[in-house]
C-alpha cells in the first residue's frame, strides 16, 4: 500500500516543476560551487566549464583533451593509466544517472531551458527542424566529438602545434558563456596569438552568439550538437538508469514526440525497441510525463520502475484531471 502510494505520488508529480528546481540547485552547484569549496573533480559528464573559476566540478573534456595531447610515446606509455583513470571516473559518474546529466544537471542545458522559458514568457513559439534537417544536423555532434579526440592526438604525434591545445574548448560556447555567471566576461575575445587561436576563438564567439539566438527559438538548441551527448551515447548501455518503452501499449499518438525538446521521432514511432534512449536524448523524461498510456514509457533503475507514464498523471499534468471553471460561461 505504502509502496503504491509513493509510486502514485511520483507518477503524478508535476515533472516540469520538479525538474526546474533540480536544475536550479544543480546550476548553483556547478556554476557557483567553487565559492563554497565544492569540487567534484574533473571528470563530470556535463558542460560545467572550468573557465568559470568557481565551478563546482569540471567538464570531462578539459582533462581529456589535455591528457590525449601528451606526446605519443608518453601517452601510450605509463601515462595511459591516468587517461584510463579519468575515463573510469567519468563512467562512474555517468553510470548512475545516464543522460539525465544532460536533462537535470548540465548548467549549459539549464541555461537553455531558461532561455526557452524567457521565450515562452514573451509569447514566441519554438521552431523545429524538418526530418531531413534533423538527420543531417544530428551528425554534427560526432564531428565535434572527433575534434575533441583527434586534435589532441594529432598534437601528441606532432602534426599540430601547441596552439591547438584544448581546441574544442576554444570553440565551445560554454567557455564563453559559463564564466559570465560569475561576472567574468573576459572570454568574449579574439585571441590573435596564433592563426589557430584566432580561428578557434572566432568560431567560439560565433557559436556563443548563435547559441543565444538558437536556444531562443529552438528548445535545447545546443544539446543537438553537443559532443558530450555523443560520448554519453557510446556508453549509455553501461548505465543503470534506463528509459524503456513498452511498444504493445503504445498507440503511436505522438504525444511524447510532440513535447520532446530534441525532436526524437523514435520515441513515438518505434514500437519494437525496449531501450528507447537515442543519441540526441537528454533524458529529461518529459516524454514519460506526456505519455497518456499506462506504463507505455517508463524509467527504470536496475529494472525497477521509478517513474512511469500513467493516464492519471498525464491528466494531472495537462490540466485534464478536473474542469477549469470558465468565468465567461
Amino acid at each position: 500500500m505504502m509502496k503504491n502510494k509513493i509510486k502514485n505520488i511520483i507518477n503524478n508529480m508535476p515533472l516540469n516543476k520538479v525538474r526546474f528546481w533540480i536544475q536550479l540547485v544543480m546550476f548553483i552547484l556547478f556554476a557557483y560551487g567553487g565559492y563554497v569549496f565544492i569540487d567534484f573533480g574533473s571528470s563530470i559528464p556535463i558542460f560545467a566549464c572550468p573557465y568559470n573559476r568557481e565551478t563546482g566540478a569540471t567538464c570531462y573534456f578539459m582533462p581529456l583533451q589535455h591528457q590525449l595531447a601528451m606526446p605519443a610515446n608518453v601517452l601510450f606509455g605509463a601515462a595511459a593509466i591516468s587517461v584510463f583513470i579519468g575515463l573510469l571516473t567519468f563512467i562512474a559518474w555517468f553510470v548512475v544517472l545516464n543522460k539525465a546529466w544532460c536533462g537535470y544537471a548540465c548548467p549549459f542545458g539549464t541555461l537553455q531551458d531558461w532561455i526557452t522559458a524567457l521565450r515562452k514568457k514573451l509569447g514566441i513559439r519554438y521552431s523545429t527542424y524538418s526530418q531531413p534537417q534533423f538527420d543531417k544536423l544530428s551528425k554534427i555532434k560526432y564531428i565535434f566529438l572527433a575534434i575533441v579526440i583527434m586534435i589532441p592526438l594529432l598534437m601528441g604525434i606532432g602534426v599540430l602545434g601547441g596552439e591547438w591545445s584544448g581546441a574544442f574548448c576554444q570553440i565551445c560556447p560554454a567557455r564563453i558563456i559559463s564564466p559570465m555567471f560569475v561576472g567574468d566576461f573576459s572570454q568574449w575575445k579574439i585571441d590573435f596569438s596564433s592563426v589557430a587561436a584566432m580561428i578557434l576563438t572566432t568560431i567560439g564567439v560565433l557559436f556563443a552568439a548563435v547559441f543565444f539566438v538558437g536556444s531562443f527559438i529552438k528548445k535545447r538548441f545546443f544539446c543537438f550538437f553537443c559532443p558530450m551527448s555523443a560520448l554519453h551515447y557510446t556508453m549509455s548501455d553501461l548505465s543503470l538508469l534506463k528509459l524503456r518503452k513498452d511498444g504493445d501499449k503504445c498507440t503511436k499518438c505522438g504525444d511524447c514526440y510532440k513535447v520532446c525538446d530534441m525532436q526524437i521521432k523514435d520515441i513515438a514511432d518505434d514500437v519494437t525497441s525496449t531501450n528507447i534512449l537515442r543519441d540526441d536524448c537528454m533524458f529529461c523524461m518529459k516524454c514519460v510525463a506526456a505519455c497518456p498510456e499506462d506504463d507505455a514509457l517508463h524509467v527504470d533503475i536496475l529494472n525497477m520502475r521509478v517513474f512511469s507514464s500513467t493516464k492519471e498523471g498525464f491528466a494531472k499534468r495537462m490540466g485534464m484531471s478536473h474542469l477549469e471553471k470558465n468565468n465567461d460561461q
Binding site: Q187, W188, K189, I190, D191, F192, V210, F212
Partner: peptide
Amino acid sequence: EYKSYQDGLIIAVLTLLLASFVAYRFR
C-alpha cells in the same frame, strides 16, 4: 596585446543580429 575583447564583442553582436535576422526571416 593579443587578446581583442572588442573584436570578440563586435563579432558576437553582429552574429547575434545576423542569426536573429536569419531565424526571423526563416520562420
